[in-house]
């Protein structure tokens, strides 16, 4: 659940950074190849990012306004990286809180295996 969001966040972020800081200057110079490839890739990966990010924000009880910011972050260079940092810290905060409630035996299980499989 968290892992797949982090993967998508970094993928969309890196592709968008390449698109904006390499592709656009090259297109201005008359070489649209990079924009064509990375524009298409980023477009489709952003759709996947939207689905994965929306799922995670609901599971982490993120309010509506912040959810919108997380979703839009995929269209701003470096935005997805910032959103990923925030959601990851939110996730570990909630995992710690759940561990405090359920006791250490359940806590290790929560932080260990569950997030990767979810």
């Amino acid at each position: 659940m968290l892992t797949r969001y982090r993967v998508m966040a970094y993928l969309t972020a890196v592709l968008l950074i390449i698109l904006v800081f390499v592709g656009i200057p090259l297109q201005v110079e008359g070489h649209p190849g990079v924009v064509n490839i990375f524009g298409t890739l980023h477009g489709f990966l952003y759709l996947v990012y939207l689905v994965v990010a929306f799922d995670l924000t609901r599971k982490l009880y993120i309010p509506v306004g912040r959810t919108l910011l997380v979703l839009l972050a995929g269209t701003v260079p470096f935005g997805a990286i910032i959103a990923e940092r925030k959601l990851t810290s939110e996730y570990s905060k909630q995992t710690r809180a759940a561990r405090a409630v359920t006791g250490p035996d359940m806590g290790t299980e929560t932080s260990g295996t569950a997030p990767e499989q979810a």
């Binding site: 609901r58 309010p63 909630q94 809180a97 409630v101």
Partner: peptide
């Protein structure tokens, strides 16, 4: 069940039994 209120409610529901 969503957003901050959902989280608060979840914490209240999880805390008392233990």
């Amino acid at each position: 069940t969503v957003g901050r209120r959902g989280l608060r409610r979840l914490q209240e529901a999880a805390a008392p039994p233990t």
